[in-house]
Structures are given as C-alpha cells and as structure tokens.
Amino acid sequence: MPRSLLRDWLLLGPGLTWLALFLVVPCGMLLVFAFFERGVYGGIDYIFTLENFSRAIDPLYLSIFLTSAKVAGLAAVIALLIGYPAAYAIARAPARRQTAYLVLVMLPFWSNYLIRTYAWIVLLNREGLVNKGLAGLGLVSEPLPLLYNEFAIVTGLVYNYLPFVVLAIYSSISRLNPEVLEASEDLGASAPRTFWRVTLPLTLPGVAAGAVFVFVLSIGNFITPDLLGGGRLQMVGNVIYDQFLTARDWPFGATLSFILIGIMMILLFSQAMLVRKAQGEGGIAHA
C-alpha cells in the first residue's frame, strides 16, 4: 500500500536518517579506523593492519583496562549495597509516598554531571569539609588524602549513578507478587530467610540491570577519572581522549573504543539474557 509506505517514511524517515548519518556512520567509521595505520602527522594512512589490537593487549594498556574494570566493578558493587536497601525501604513505604521518594532520588541524576562531580572536589580535598569534619571530631590528626585517587573516583561514580540503581531495583521489588512472600512466611520461613531465598532471587533482574548500568557507564567514563583522579589514575576513557587530542593516534584511540564497546555489548547482552531467563521461569515475579 503506497499510502502507508508514505506515512511510514514521513514518521520514521527523518529521525532514522539523522541517526544513520550522525550516529551509525561516525561510529562505523571509528570502528574501521581501528584496522588502519596511523598517519605520520596524525590522521590515518589507509593501510590495513592488526597492530593496533596487538598494541592494545600490551601490558600497559591491559593494566589500564583492568584498572578501569576494577574501579567500575567496585562502583557497581558499592552502589548495589547502598541502593538495594534504599530501594527496599521505598518499596515498603506507604504507596502514596513512593513516587515522591523516587523523584527525590532521581532529581540529582538529571542535573549537571560536571557540577555533581565538582562538589566532591570541594568535599574531599585536604581543606575540604570531610577532612575538617574528621579533624573536628578528633578522628584524624593529619588531613587524609581523599582526593585524586581511586577512592575519590569510586565515590564520584557511586554518587552519580546510585539514583539509577535505586530505580532499577525498586521497579523489580515493586513487581514482586506479595502472595509469594506470604506463602513463604506461612510455610514457616523467617523474615531473613524469606528475603534471602525468595525476595532477593526474584529481584535479581533489577540488581543485574542496576549493576550493568553502573559498570558500563563507569568503565567508559571520562569526566570522573579526569576530575577526581587528577590525572594520576588513568582509565580507558582518559586514554582514548589522549589518543585523539594529545597523541594524535586516531587508529589506536579507535581500537580502544572498539574494545570498550565490545565489552559493553557483551555485558548488556548477558543482562538481557538474564532478564529473559527470569521472565521465562513462570513469571513468578509478576502479580
């Protein structure tokens, strides 16, 4: 039917053309760059090579990938440990207050990332409020080195992404069928046992979604390691930045991006599989 074809084209065409032109083509180009040699004065020589990939698994870059993964993993675990009980508390609050509580959690998430990160420079530096508070309480005699290290980066990442973790877990908990929990208690399970054996396993898709989200956004992060790591701790995002703006080695920067996106895709795919599996198991989590 030509009419509906015209309609589809009018609806989908402009947006898809835009995304094809300014998302698919640039990202595709970047992936292709990974297989070429670097030009003498920067730029690209169109000679096929796999050398960028062998360079990427050089111990130097491998250790940067591992550091990034470690920082991102720590951020994800800590965000879960803080986020789960918070989401649980909101899900158990009176129904009419839950939305307000969640909006309050999400509000900082939608505000300026740079400023939220900068706030931690103010809090964590030697003269900052955290050190002043600790000294005031007589807990430390010397200011602690809280800024420009891994601790600062992990704190910043947890701070920035915690709201999303709470939201993801909350949506899992709020979908729990209360009858399943009642059944567990009627059958004599204690409250902790019900939590560990029923609630937690059934809310794992939310936990996985939250964890994968924090990990993926953290491992490729640039701003947080740049500002809170103070250049002393490099993560993949910073190295990619340097390859493009400082070293002018585009093919190698492209290769690192390629690997980063590969890692992210594997994680997102596994998470999607986990959700599918959980839904396949009789949908017990749904009321």
Partner: peptide, 23 residues
C-alpha cells in the same frame, strides 16, 4: 532499530564525541 535508538543512551560520551569529531 531498537538498538539504534538505545545506543545513544548507553554509548560512552567520549566514544560518540570522537566518532563525531572524526566524521
């Protein structure tokens, strides 16, 4: 199509930024 619409939300900003700059 779903992937194309999901990608901009999840792709690292730095990667999209350099992709666009190169383009």
């Amino acid at each position: 199509l779903e992937a194309m619409l999901f990608a901009p939300m999840i792709i690292p900003d730095i990667v999209l930024a350099i992709a666009l700059l190169s383009f």
